[in-house]
Design a protein around this nucleic acid. Structure first.
Lengths: 195, 195
DNA sequence: GCGGCATGTTAGCAGTGTAAACATTGACGA
DNA sequence: TCGTCAATGTTTACACTGCTAACATGCCGC
């Protein structure tokens, strides 16, 4: 259900006491701040200030800062997945899987703080067995690996291959973000590493 | 030069106004706290409190909290490297390189907060070219890869292979720490992923 | 029209990192 | 031997944080 089903004719004026859709505005502002500030210097109060609302108004929509971050993380996760899907669709061929990997790294480099947040604030995604993985990126991963290995592959084989592929792109992204590796050189190597 | 060259006959009593080696005590206490609390809830004031010293005394030894963290990160990096070396030495054979990878993951799982800190608070380690890498772990990595590829390998080849190997273990460690992956299943797969 | 409830507000608390001013003391030169 | 000085502590204070409690406003359904 839409969060704001019956707010159609709410006032939108900026000076209105009631905001209209404060929750969405907070998420949007926080996402925008994450493009500039990093996670540990993102404050509830600043988000509220920028939206033009008192700090404690946030608590009408999120029980705690952590829950706001969780909402951001979910958005980030979805964005990441969509970007991977688009990249795969563009490729069409059997390079589609590799394209999702490249898209993963590209997303990390484009939105470092959001990318990090995604992995801090959301639990267990991939596990062995039939059950679908949680979250679009993990789900895409499992599907492509299953496809690549063929129907005769065991759960264990699928899990191992998926874990390996994910580790590779995740590690690469993280090492570049954390400046553990010469950035320019590493970026030039992305294709060769993922290949 | 040793930081405390002429403090041999300083008082060590706990009620002494001067501490003796406060810097070391702070680092030790902070490291110990990192085994229990995670980074964002590690406070300067608590470290100082536990050492029995006022909060601002810290600033006689570190310009800012960030600099204390940097010192911790350096210790962590050294510990990680030593553990990798020990693992390699135990193996002796040509599986030595793989053992450094396993040690890397083991260290991350054993000291998650310190491990994370290492990569937040220290810049550029690995880059292409003759220059030795910065930090023991990156240096070991480069050496083993060079050894494995033989003398005829180009700088680019060495860099690509090292980057790939590092990404693999780093990603695996991070995904497990961030609970993106079923922990038990992933731990059982470590050998297969690194292999 | 009106009452209630969702959604805002202000005030205040405990905790943080850090700067400034002051206190203590161990080591060294007279 | 002793006085001074630099190193290393302390207290106080500030701006900021996340968060709770008590109060204010105004949209919605009756």
């Amino acid at each position: 259900m839409p969060r704001n089903a019956n707010s159609v004719n709410m006032k939108k004026a900026k000076d209105a006491y009631h905001h209209g859709d404060l929750r969405a505005a907070l998420v949007a502002e926080a996402l925008s701040l994450l493009e500039k500030r990093d996670l540990e210097q993102l404050s509830l109060r600043e988000v509220a200030r920028n939206v033009g609302v008192s700090a404690t108004a946030v608590y009408r929509h999120f029980p705690s800062k952590d829950d706001l971050l969780k909402a951001l993380a979910e958005r980030g996760l979805a964005m990441l997945g969509e970007q991977q899907q688009r990249a795969a669709a563009r490729a069409e061929g059997r390079t589609a899987f590799a394209q999702t990997g490249r898209a993963y790294v590209r997303f990390a480099l484009a939105h470092p703080n959001l990318f990090r947040l995604v992995f801090i604030h959301t639990p267990a995604r991939l596990r062995p067995g039939k059950g679908s993985a949680e979250g679009l990126p993990a789900s895409l991963l499992k599907d492509y690996v299953t496809l690549g290995l063929g129907a005769k592959a065991s759960d264990e084989q699928v899990f191992a291959a998926a874990l390996r592929a994910w580790s590779l792109v995740h590690g690469l992204a993280m090492l570049i973000l954390d400046e553990q590796v010469d950035r320019k050189a590493a970026e030039a190597m992305i294709d060769r590493v993922i290949g």
